[in-house]
Write a protein that binds this DNA or RNA. Structure first.
Length: 117
DNA sequence: GTTGTGACGACTT
DNA sequence: AAAGTCGCCACAA
């Protein structure tokens, strides 16, 4: 028997698939949207085991600090950074730079709302 | 069953 | 701001 209910994974994949191009969301936010509050770690797991055939925009999922959670220096880390920059995002000291987001800056508030201060 | 690890996050020092 | 603590839980050893 599979450890995690397949249905839960599918709900998470669906939530990830719903992130619009040019926007990002946190693991916690995806978990919430999938009806699984407090299961942020499961989202990470779901992305790890997601079939490539689903072609999910997995790179649009960042941690609550706006940073890439894949190990710094790893293949996946750079891959994710490249994909995000390809969608108009810029990074500042390892953190996504919300202010410099090009294209449609007014859409940034929809999914991910980092602290502005 | 127990322990350690991790693509997390909220809270407290 | 940065680091520590705790809750969370799937998975491997």
């Amino acid at each position: 028997m599979a450890g995690v209910d397949r249905k839960l994974l599918e709900r998470i994949w669906k939530a990830v698939r719903a992130i619009p191009r040019g926007q990002v969301a946190s693991y916690g936010e995806i978990a919430r949207r999938a009806g699984l509050p407090r299961r942020a770690r499961l989202v990470g797991h779901a992305l790890k085991v997601a079939p490539a055939s689903l072609k999910l925009p997995w790179h649009r999922v960042l941690n609550s600090k706006g940073m890439i959670s894949l190990p710094a220096g790893s293949r996946g880390h750079r891959r994710q950074r490249d994909l995000l920059e390809g969608e108009g995002h810029r990074f500042r000291r390892g953190r996504i730079d919300h202010e410099a987001a090009g294209g449609a800056p007014d859409l940034d508030e929809l999914l991910w709302r980092p602290r502005r201060d």
